[in-house]
Computed example of a mutant assay.
Amino acid sequence: MTASVVFALPAPEADYLRELVEQYLELVTAPEDPRDTAAKRLSPDAYPDDEAAAAEFRELTRDDVAATRAADARLVLATLGDGPIPHDDAASGQPLTLDPQQQTAWLRTLAGLRLVLAERIGISDESIMPVGDPRFDVYEWLGYRQEMLLQALDG
């Protein structure tokens, strides 16, 4: 990722994404809740067969990982702007220009959002897709947006 990329994000999507990223930022900056499986999925065990080593690794890396996720989310929010986007021409989208640092932040934040949603709606692998759950549509939409960004990077 050496150059800036430009891609369009329709105004309603930008507004909705801003809301999701704000919620994600709240999650990654909240005190650790060992009962929250979605938050835990953002930092899976490095040593699944060694509980003590996994706990030690998590203790050593938790603050840095959370700080990186929060910084990424804040950068995504900064590129989206502060308030609702004017919907004068919502279909054409707001052109976003992302530098390499912003590209990385966007990709990691979209991936993090998908991990959280996957855990919340019970997706453990691609063969388990919830039927009739509207959150799955959001999960798919985030994947679509992630793919669009990756295509812009390759383009």
Rank of each mutant, 00 (worst) to 15 (best):
T2H: 13
S4H: 12
V5C: 04
V6M: 10
F7S: 05
F7D: 00
L9S: 01
A11M: 03
Y16V: 09
R18E: 07
R18V: 06
L20A: 11
L20Q: 15
Q23G: 15
E26V: 09
E26K: 14
E26Q: 14
A30C: 02
P31L: 06
E32L: 09
E32I: 04
D33R: 01
P34V: 04
P34I: 00
D36G: 02
T37M: 06
S43R: 14
D45W: 09
D45A: 15
P48R: 05
D49S: 12
D49R: 13
D50W: 11
D50T: 09
A53N: 03
E56C: 00
E56I: 04
R58N: 06
R58F: 10
E59G: 13
L60G: 10
D63F: 05
D64R: 13
V65C: 01
A67M: 02
A67I: 01
R69H: 10
R69S: 06
A71R: 12
L77F: 08
T79D: 15
T79V: 07
G83L: 08
P84G: 11
P86I: 04
D88S: 06
D88V: 10
A90E: 14
S92G: 08
S92F: 08
L96P: 03
L96W: 03
T97N: 09
L98N: 09
W106D: 05
R108L: 08
R108H: 14
R108A: 09
T109I: 01
L110H: 04
L110E: 04
L110T: 04
G112I: 02
L115Y: 03
V116M: 06
A118V: 01
R120C: 04
R120Y: 02
R120I: 02
R120A: 02
I123C: 07
D125C: 03
S127T: 13
S127F: 08
M129D: 06
R135D: 13
F136E: 05
D137S: 14
Y139D: 01
Y139F: 15
E140Y: 09
E140S: 12
W141R: 15
L142C: 00
R145K: 10
Q146F: 11
M148K: 13
M148D: 14
L150N: 07
D154G: 13
D154M: 12
